[in-house]
Design a protein around this nucleic acid. Structure first.
Length: 647
RNA sequence: GCGCCCGUAGCUCAGCUGGAUAGAGCGAUUGGCUUCGAACCAAUAGGCCGGGGGUUCGAGUCCCUCCGGGCGCGCCA
């Protein structure tokens, strides 16, 4: 509702400013510093002051005079040095909310692809991957809540070095056959992704000590690329198994995908070759004949760097002198496909719970269509921004400027461990590491907190609490509630930080259920439900709000400043989500959820609903309870957090 | 060396395209359960917004510079 009014006023003022002053000022609305100033502040007079060479205060007064009465607005006041403060008509506003006025505004504008998770299928997922997946998934939910059409992709690099290393480790280091690995996979006593986690760390350190063993990697990569032989078979088995583990881990967090595009298909369907032709034709890349990049196809640095000293040394190699393509090259091809610009498509088949790409036509034919989006968000950590710039430059060099503008690197900072946490996990730190403010999570070193371990730990902690509060409840139900709380805590923890803030992971903070946490918000939602449940238990029916609450009743009840402020906050969900979408910042939604919960907890504490004696007030309080509850649940839904039956 | 990010309360972080008196949570101190269950609420203390210049009617926010920290800059992905 708030968002609706906001837009209406903003549009109206912008129109007037154009007509009255012939100026094109952006009419952004602000929240007044103090609630007593009103509900909205329009600072437009300040922006006009410079152009018109007039005092802001005078301009503001002119605008107010020209504006006349506005629907839903009870007063416009010039305040401070030139603010226009807006006071809303409380009765009309309350009634508008009750009638569901302007809640959702459908605004579809073409398909948006969001790619996230993208974990190398060679080991278990860790907290760094969790941040990626939770950010991506929440952004998807935000977009959908905003009325957009979204396709979720999780890219699987099943033919890369990381997979090859684990394959080599099984084959050369452990001397295991494909049958042995198969046996290991089916052994219920073995967590295969955890096994690979250790194995990957082991082989990485082995490579460090025995550089000559790197030949294993080359052999394996070669075998994987040819797609035949035992090593290739082993790679497929391992990568598929690990991907399945990742899907299960993410499923615990409520994270799902539409399609899993795989590197192997990009290879076999020759996506790169097609892109290569385009790049050569448009002269986006050139064949280097001298210098250190001699014999390579390179992209000139001027394509992706702001300023360049024309030094060819800065160019980015796309095709190596041995004829193989780099990761960035493949990524350009993949990005072209996402926009439907490659002129090629994958084949798809259902696999587990999603669609996965295939190199061969499927018997049923038809099938789903993926890719061909209008804009693309790649959720990738900020360390890869340089490479993402190169990919975008590739699109631009091909003349796809619009698509380049709509290729968004949805970047975020990494998750690191405090030295204390690293020690707690049983890692031995070098003297150098101990001095550092934090330690980078490293799959190669096997240094990190595994996603499933953290989830399990959170569930156990939540379960202790649930057990002591609800000993009478069935055990499986208690576990269900504890799981929802644990996931709520984890998702919120990953979302409360803005994207470009480094998260220094700390168990104590992550395991907290109090204060600014997911469970705090869940608790508020549960409390609202409890009141309504209690009402039903007493055999009382919910009033017919539309019938019993008219504008005058709302005006009377909302005259109380407390109620008015509470209703305002509760009605700002759309506004908060929209702002978060525009700024690409899921943390804004998390923050709003917390503020909403705070407001509700105040309401809950200050105004006993069921014992209220005044009939009108009681009806109003019940309505507020329902509305708060609905807004809390909706916001939590956008955050991917469930509301437990009880807490 | 070049590029990007960060520096705000003891700790962890917000602060929307520059706007009115800089905010939360945790921790600390104090108070509140008579079940709409306290995973809560209330109150108090705590700040040269890293330093210095500048732009502006107005700067935590923009520009320059310095200091401190992180991350990139491969014919790895």
């Amino acid at each position: 509702m708030f968002h609706f009014i906001e837009k209406k006023i903003s549009d109206r003022v912008a129109e007037l400013v154009r007509a009255q002053f012939g100026a094109d000022a952006t009419v952004a609305l602000e929240q007044p510093k103090q609630p007593s100033f009103g509900e909205l502040a329009i600072p437009v007079a300040f922006h006009l002051a410079r152009q018109l060479k007039k005092a802001p205060k005078a301009i503001a007064a002119e605008i107010v005079a020209a504006l006349g009465p506005l629907e839903g607005v009870s007063a416009l006041e010039v305040a401070g040095n030139g603010y226009i403060n807006v006071r809303l008509d409380r009765g009309a506003y309350g009634l508008g909310v009750l009638r569901g006025g302007g809640e959702s505004l459908p605004q579809d504008s073409g398909k948006i692809i969001v790619e996230h998770t993208n974990i190398n299928p060679n080991k278990a997922a860790h907290i760094g991957h969790l941040r990626n997946a939770v950010l991506g998934d929440t952004f998807v939910r935000m977009l959908r809540a905003n009325g957009r059409t979204v396709e979720v992709q999780n890219y699987i690099d099943n033919t890369g070095v990381q997979v090859a290393d684990v394959v080599a480790a099984f084959h050369y280091l452990e001397q295991k056959s494909a049958a042995d690995v198969e046996k290991l996979l089916n052994d219920p006593a073995v967590r295969f992704d955890y096994y690979c986690w250790d194995l990957y760390a082991r082989v990485s350190s082995y490579f460090n000590e025995h550089p000559e063993a790197l030949e294993w990697r080359h052999q394996t990569l070669h075998a994987i690329e040819s797609g035949t032989g035992e090593l290739a078979q082993l790679a497929t088995t391992i990568a598929d198994a690990i991907v399945e583990y990742h899907l299960k881990t993410m499923d615990r967090l409520g994270i799902h995908y539409d399609v899993l595009p795989r590197e192997s298909e990009i290879l076999h369907l020759k996506f790169w070759e097609t892109a290569f032709e385009q790049l050569k034709q448009r002269q986006a890349i050139y064949f280097e004949t001298e210098g250190k990049n001699k014999g390579c196809w390179v992209m000139p640095a001027s394509a992706f760097k702001e300023q360049t000293n024309e030094d060819t040394e800065d160019s980015k190699v796309i095709v190596r002198s041995n004829g193989t393509v780099t990761y960035v090259g493949k990524d350009i091809a993949y990005q072209l496909w996402k926009f439907g610009l490659l002129g090629k498509d994958f084949y798809y088949r259902p696999w587990k719970t999603v669609y996965i790409t295939s190199a061969h036509p499927q018997p049923e034919g038809g099938g789903p269509h993926f890719g061909g989006a209008e804009s693309v968000y790649n959720v990738i950590d900020s360390r890869q921004s340089y490479l993402q710039d190169v990919v975008v430059a590739g699109l631009r060099a091909l003349g796809y400027n619009q698509q380049a503008d709509r290729s968004i690197h949805f970047s975020y900072e990494m998750v690191v461990l405090s030295p204390g946490t690293a020690v707690e996990l049983g890692f031995e730190l070098s003297e150098e590491d101990k001095k550092r403010p934090h330690i980078e999570v490293s799959g190669r070193k096997g240094l990190g907190v595994k996603a499933d371990d953290l989830i399990d730990k959170l569930i156990e902690k939540a379960l202790e609490e649930v057990d002591s509060r609800h000993p009478e409840a069935p055990a499986d139900e208690r576990r269900q509630v504890a799981t929802q709380i644990a996931i709520g805590a984890l998702r919120y923890f990953m979302l409360k930080y803005t994207r470009n803030s480094v998260i220094a992971f700390d168990f104590q903070e992550a395991l907290s259920f109090e204060g600014e946490t997911g469970p705090y918000v869940q608790y508020a939602a549960v409390r609202a439900r409890n009141i309504l449940r209690k009402l039903a238990e007493r055999g009382q029916a919910l009033p017919d709000f539309a019938h019993e609450l008219n504008q005058a009743a709302f005006a009377r009840q909302l005259a109380a400043e407390d109620f008015w402020q509470m209703l305002l906050i509760a009605s700002k969900a759309d506004s908060a989500i929209d702002r978060a979408v525009v700024s690409g910042e899921p943390a804004h939604v998390a923050r709003y959820a917390f503020q909403l919960a705070q407001a509700y907890n105040n309401f809950y504490h200050g105004y006993p609903v069921l014992t209220e004696e005044s009939p009108e007030k009681r009806t109003f309080l019940l309505w507020m309870t329902g509305y708060f509850g609905a807004q809390l649940e909706r916001t939590l839904g956008v955050l991917g957090i469930a509301v437990p039956e009880y807490m």
